[in-house]
Structure formats: structure tokens, C-alpha cells
Design a protein around this nucleic acid. Structure first.
Lengths: 238, 238
DNA sequence: CGAGCGCTTGATCAGCATCAACTCAAGTGG
DNA sequence: CCACTTGAGTTGATGCTGATCAAGCGCTCG
């Protein structure tokens, strides 16, 4: 489950999502330091947990491959999904203050995570100004992304915004691939958006009928991006 | 509108909300450095702007007195409120990445803000590890707070969660005062929660009838805290 | 190969948005 | 200083959006 990064051939300098992760635009010396601190990979299978709510925060995790959902269980036993994480995303930042995980995180598929020991990482930030700047930028981008997904009023707005958000994030990872796998279930999406899963299904079907998207076997293709934008509320101009 | 902090007698070391702000648990030397960087106060009247969406990010602001709403205008002209800020809160963190304000911020009452020049502040973080740790904690707490307000399913859950959230934040500021002024209008609350303002009004009335809250002239008192918790979804155990 | 989870579809109905109209307080300008 | 305007709060009537219940299908995985 835990392996040295070297045996998997993973180094920040060669990583395909370094432009989204901490290593973004760092010089060789800074990246060497990152590779020194981040020495192991955690491999997690579908539905297994990366962390549990209330656990002591020992590591942050950078998603290297795969995807995760972050959630908590409310008093009625409902799963409230708070976020999805894709390659390059950092898991656990919102838990730094309390030094305990404030959410649970589970893998949506076979997932590899670079393990970032929180103590040495925070220590390093004081000594490496460029890494610090990058980490503050990542914090800020996370806040922006968290806000962007609570904007829609009607359920179709919410779903269109969600699809646009995921699509844009996937495009940053695999440029020019306008087709990608939706790793989360429709139930996960419904728990994320706070709407009934039947409604999610109906609206996805409707968008398919209207040839705005194509959804086969969890593979999503956006056929009419500008129409999806019209239906959504989110403004994704750069 | 802009005055030296000294003429207003404001210093981080003597500030009544330093325990919520950057100065929290810093030693004398660190606080001196803060007072050096944060040298002026901006005074803003009700309905006037602290910053506008798309403006270049020059300063962060720490609320010293008063309160603010953060919002953007959607394509239908609706005001979408994204956050409220109270004394001790830092405005602008989510805009650090883009170096432009991603929201507009307006004062809800006569408000005083400590001006934090972003360039020298970020520079300082590299040199003052304790201030850095505190700022990372503030980042993390903001993410946690942003999440906490998107949990309710029904509108009464949302409103109860909102009242609990504001109440808890006010209690941190004026301990043992279970009565406080709701500086935002019911319309602001509706734009924040994404529900109709008539509904906000009806539910507040209903909570008043049930003696769970008392609301007179914008002064809110929580009469039955545990019942409000039952009606809400949020878990505010420490 | 069987069980269960995820997906699909229809029918029903209530929660909340919307529309409309009115009160009240505060502010503006003639 | 008062008429007028404007914004916030209040309340009722109506109807639609989306939750809920119910039932069946088909993967996928053990």
C-alpha cells in the first residue's frame, strides 16, 4: 500500500501534473527538496479510504493518479460529499487548522497519492519562499473552486456548472481531450450537489437528448460547450 | 477615508479581536513587524465598496470594526452573496492566486479595515515562520467555514445553520453576549443562501413564534440554542 | 452465477419560488 | 419641513420544480 516513490518512478520534476501541483514553476533546487520531503506513494483501491474524519492530520496527499471523494455523514446517515479530487490536487489543506481531518476521503478508482508529511512540509515552507508562494496560490485556488460550485439556483444550473467545472479541470490535465471518464457515480454527484439522484439522472438524460453532452458508460463528452455555459450560471472565462 | 492606524489608536497588540486575526499568539517581535507592515486603516460607510470584482489585488483587509458582504452579480443581474466578514476576518485571501479580486466587497455598516499590502505581507511570511503558521491556519479555517455553510438541504436547515454560524462567530468576538445585531438585511441572507427573501422572512418569523429566536429591529437573540441545532444540520461541537 | 449496487423511468405531491399588494421607516429634494 | 421616493420587511394566493415513493433493469464483482 505504501511504496517508495522511486520504485514507481515518480519524481515531481517528471510528473505529468506538476503544472497543477506544488512543483509548478519551481526551479531544480526547490523540486529536489520536494522530492526529498515527499518520498513515498500510497496506493488505494476503489472505495478504500485515504483518511477518516477526526483522524489526526499526519499527511497531506497529492493525487498522482486516479480520483477521490471527500465527504462526511450527517445525523440522518446521509453522505454529504464536499469535494472531488483529481491528479495534481492536494487533499487535507482545510484540516491544517484543527490538526485533525475534518472530512473522510475515499478513492473512486485505483488511486496513487504522493504522501506529504505535514510537519516537515510546513517547516520547509518557511525555508523555501518559492514553494511557499506556490502553496499559498494553491490555497487560494481551492477557495475559489469551493465557491464556484455553490452558485447555481435551479438543479439544471447546478448540474451544468458541475459538468463545466469537472470538464475544465480535466482539460487542464489532459489538454484537448474533450472526452473523459466521470469516475464518480450519479449518486456521488447528487450527494455533492444536494439534490435527489433521480433528478441527476433525469437531467443528464435530458442534456443527452438535447445533444449538449454525450454520456455512455461513464464516459462524458461535451458536445455543445457554449450551450452548457448558457444553461449554467458559472462564468469560466479565463 | 485612509488614516494612519496610530491616529486611531489601533495596534495589533492591543486589538480586541487579535485572538481571531493574524496576531493570534504571536510574540512581541512578530506583532511589531505586523504593525510595521499594516500601517493604515481604511474607513468605509454603509453600502460603500472596499473592493470591486476584477480590480488588481493590492491589499488584503482585516476587519477591525463593522462588517462586510462579499458578492458578485450573475448574468441575470442577481446579487450572489458569497460571504460575510466580521471583526478579525481577513478579506481577499481567495483572490491571491489570480492577483485580482474575484468578488466585490461592500460595507454593511460603518466599517474600519486594517490595510495589509499584499506584496510586503507575502514577503514577510517567508521571514516570520510564526506569522506564516498563523496565516496558513487562517486559510484553513476559512475553507472550513466556507464548507460549513453549504450543508443544509431544506431551507429551514439552511437558515438555522446560518444563524448558528453567525452566532458562533459573534460569540468568539463578544463572549457571553447571546444577543447581537444582524448587520445584513434579510435580502442579503436570501442572496447568500440562494433562497427567496420572502421565505427567509417567513422562517425567521416561524422561529420567533416557536420562541427559538427573538428578532427585533435587527437584534437577534437565540433563545433555544439546542433546538436550533436540532433544526439545523451543522455540528458545532468544538 | 447470484446478489447488490447503480441506473432508469413513472406517478404523486409538497416545499418553496413567484407574483402581488401593503406597511413602515429612512432618506431626498423641492 | 413636508411630499415623495426608495428600500426593507410582511403576508397571502397560486403553481411549478424537484423530492419522494415505487418498481424494474442490467452491470459488475465476489
Amino acid at each position: 500500500m505504501i511504496k517508495p516513490r522511486a520504485t514507481k518512478g515518480i519524481y515531481c520534476g517528471q510528473c505529468s501534473v506538476q503544472h497543477l501541483c506544488i512543483a509548478h514553476q519551481l526551479d531544480v533546487r526547490d523540486i529536489q527538496k520536494l522530492d526529498e520531503i515527499i518520498s513515498v506513494v500510497k496506493c488505494v483501491n476503489r472505495n478504500n479510504h485515504i483518511s477518516r474524519i477526526h483522524d489526526t492530520l499526519i499527511n497531506l496527499y497529492a493525487v498522482h493518479k486516479g480520483s477521490c471523494k471527500e465527504y462526511w455523514i450527517d445525523e440522518d446517515g446521509n453522505e454529504c460529499v464536499t469535494n472531488f479530487y483529481f491528479p495534481g490536487d492536494i487533499i487535507g489543506i482545510e484540516s491544517v487548522a484543527k490538526k485533525k481531518h475534518i472530512f473522510s476521503v475515499a478513492a473512486l478508482e485505483s488511486t496513487e497519492l504522493c504522501v506529504i508529511p505535514i510537519e516537515s512540509f510546513l517547516q520547509m515552507l518557511s525555508e523555501y519562499p518559492n514553494i511557499l508562494q506556490r502553496f499559498l496560490t494553491i490555497n487560494s485556488l481551492k477557495m475559489q473552486n469551493d465557491q464556484s460550485t455553490r452558485m447555481g439556483v435551479t438543479v439544471s444550473e447546478k448540474i451544468c456548472d458541475f459538468l463545466l467545472n469537472v470538464s475544465n479541470r480535466m482539460n487542464e490535465r489532459m489538454p484537448a481531450a474533450n472526452k473523459f471518464r466521470l469516475s464518480m457515480s450519479q449518486i456521488d454527484i447528487s450527494n455533492y450537489l444536494g439534490i435527489a439522484y433521480e433528478t441527476v439522472n433525469r437531467i443528464l438524460k435530458d442534456l443527452s437528448h438535447k445533444k449538449i453532452i454525450s454520456l455512455k458508460n461513464k464516459t462524458l463528452e461535451i458536445l455543445n460547450y457554449s450551450e452548457l455555459q448558457n444553461l449554467g450560471k458559472l462564468d469560466y472565462q479565463k
